[in-house]
Structures are given as C-alpha cells and as structure tokens.
C-alpha cells in the first residue's frame, strides 16, 4: 500500500515538475493577480494597506481555482483512471496523492511567498505570522473542496466556466474565516483558526470520500 502510494506520488510530482505549465501556472497566476490590486487602486497607499490581506487571500483563491481544472483531467482523458479502476488500485491513494500534489504546487508556494507579498502590498509586519498560519490551514481546504467539484465536472464540454461557477460559493466560508483570522490574530484571539482547523479535519475525512464516489461514477 505504501509502495503504491509512494509510486503514485512520485509520478504525480514528476508530472508537475516536468510539465512546466502545470507547475508554475498557479504561482504565475497568483503573481499576476497580486499585480492587479495596487494598479487598480490608483496609487492609494492607505487603501492598499487596508486590503493587503484580503487581496492575498483572493489571489490564493483564484490561483487554486484556476489550477483545479487540470487536477484529474489528464488521467481521465487518456484513460489512466480507468486502468487504475480495473486493476483495483484503491482510489483513496489516487485522490490523496492528487490532493497532496495539488497543494504542494499551488498552496505551498503561495504560503511561503505570502510574507513577501504582504510587505510588497505595504501591509503591516504584525500580520505576517497570522497570514502565514491562516493560509497554511486555508489553502489545503481550497484544494480539498475543489477536488470533488473538479471530479464532478469531468467529461462536460465547457468545464472551465462551470468549475469556476460551482466552486466559488463553496470557497466563501473559507475566505471569510481566513481573512477574519488574520485580523483577530494580532489581538490575540484564535477562534477563527480553531474553526478553520475544525473544517479542515472534517473535510479531510469526508471530501476525499465524496471525491472517490464521484470519480467512480464519472468513469463510465
């Protein structure tokens, strides 16, 4: 079992690394999105300072959303998922490897770079740690919630727009709590963190399970 897990994980990571589009796409999109905020505010430093945290969260959301499209697409299209199913490879391994890789290449770089961008958007230094933690809990949740929806839309013709449309309502609680948690971090209250952790711990059990169900249905 672990052998299979490592094997599939290494293949997935390899797929991300050598397919340059896939690996840098999310991060590149994040950077581009970040660029929009200072430009669209007309040079108002004060306003930028106020919305710096929100803008980083919004960009993280969109970067995640954009890269959801390619999550299962390749394996579905060329029939690899079908072969996994026929050869009775447990789907939870596949789903978890996909989840880990997706987070590793979309959430993780954003988390690492977030302090830099906070300063870049002239946010205050106190929020660095708060933002770091909240993104650390929030971005895996984005990936987790996106997974079943990405699996749902497999095989539909206009997949991209539908995916965006369906996913954003489900991302809303995360972004609300995420942004709030950063704001309350500086005043020493962690209630939103606990809430996010609670959602994450529930989600990491149920959402992959739903994803497996949906993937199996989508194969036919």
């Amino acid at each position: 079992m672990t052998r299979l897990f490592i094997l599939l994980l290494s293949r997935e990571v390899k797929g991300y690394l050598f397919n340059t589009n896939k690996s840098w796409f999310a991060l590149g999109f994040f950077l581009l999105c970040i660029l929009i905020f200072p430009l669209s505010l007309g040079g108002s430093e004060d306003l930028l300072k106020k919305i710096s945290i929100s803008s980083i969260w919004i960009c993280a959301l969109f970067a995640n959303l954009i890269s959801l499209e390619s999550l299962f697409k390749e394996d579905y299209k060329n029939g690899t998922l079908l072969q996994y199913h026929i050869n009775r490879i447990p789907f939870f391994i596949i789903v978890f490897t996909k989840f880990i890789c997706h987070w590793l290449f979309t959430g993780f770089p954003i988390i690492i770079l977030s302090p830099l961008f906070l300063i870049f958007l002239s946010g205050s230094y106190e929020n660095i740690l708060g933002l770091f933690y909240s993104l650390l809990i929030g971005t895996p949740l984005f990936s987790l919630i996106g997974m079943p929806i990405s699996a749902l839309t497999l095989g539909s013709a206009a997949r991209g727009p539908i995916l965006v449309f369906l996913t954003i309502p489900f991302f809303l609680p995360i972004i609300i709590f995420g942004v709030l948690s950063v704001n309350s971090f500086s005043s020493g209250s962690f209630s939103e963190y606990y809430l996010l952790c609670a959602i994450l711990s529930i989600g990491i059990i149920f959402l992959p399970y739903i994803t497996i169900k949906i993937l199996k249905e989508s194969l036919e």
Partner: peptide
C-alpha cells in the same frame, strides 16, 4: 483491459 484510451501520459 485494452480499450480505445491507451492510458498514456503524453509527456
């Protein structure tokens, strides 16, 4: 099983 889809990753 060998079907129409060959389970080949293009890269």
């Amino acid at each position: 099983y060998v079907g129409h889809k060959n389970a080949l990753c293009e890269e």
